[in-house]
Nucleic acid binder design. Structure first.
Lengths: 123, 123
DNA sequence: CCGCAACATTGATAAGCATCAATGTTGTGC
DNA sequence: GCACAACATTGATGCTTATCAATGTTGCGG
């Protein structure tokens, strides 16, 4: 396995860090190669129109969460494709997945969008 | 010509709009398809480690601008590749290009990063 | 246990992208 | 005008990705 789809290992960037393994080496003026690669993964997840719409729909929903069957129709995409995009957003740390019964409910990770926005202004 | 590389027509999104041709139709709850496609172009420009580093280097420079010859070495990339990435960032409305003599100086478009960050929080 | 419904995963395919070598363009100095 | 330096552009190549059809998995109702 481990097909290395280019979207893994992002969570360390958006989750609370407990040591200095993340971010810039304190005194570095410009972005290092490793750091840039990790940050690019978040933006790669955002670099697709359908994924932006998914985030928007999930956010706009009154209950704060949506299941796959609610997302397939507005995007005019097949169910496997929607599941694929959702997985990418979850791996990017932007969406949270909770399975209840047969349904899978997706919701925004609190503060994730704001934290990603901070990646830009603190470039 | 008009090879449609997928990075054109972004400037209208980041430049001051004089009419209602941009953004959501005022009352729309979720992102429309056209709007999503335009916003995705900005994040597509950010979805590459080397382009993030380019932005970082240009921003960190004391003079506020850098020429291509200064950017080739730190990225360990060929000159045509760096020019290609810079073009994508310019087309995305993030960088500004000014040619003086033989050199081309690239600088951050003021407020572009902040405005892009706003695209996220206002999803 | 059986059938079905909601998702996830796999495999295949076409489109897109990053990179480089080679070449073109343009400005400078002689 | 000539040679050179700094970039830009073109063409080719290998890798990545978006999408779908088909199949696998899991939970619920009978």
């Amino acid at each position: 396995m481990l097909r290395h789809n280019g979207y893994m290992d992002l969570l360390p960037l958006l989750e609370p860090v407990t040591d200095e393994a993340c971010c810039a080496p304190a005194g570095a003026p410009a972005l290092g190669a490793e750091e840039a690669k990790r940050k690019a993964l978040v933006f790669k997840a955002l670099a697709d129109p359908n994924r932006l719409r998914l985030l928007s729909i999930v956010k706009a929903d009154a209950s704060g969460e949506s299941c796959v069957c609610d997302l397939t129709e507005p995007l005019n995409l097949g169910q496997p494709t929607v599941s694929h995009h959702l997985k990418i957003l979850v791996d990017a740390g932007l969406l949270h997945r909770e399975k209840r019964g047969t349904w899978a409910y997706y919701s925004l990770v609190p503060g994730a969008l704001e934290q990603t926005a901070g990646l830009l202004t603190s470039l």
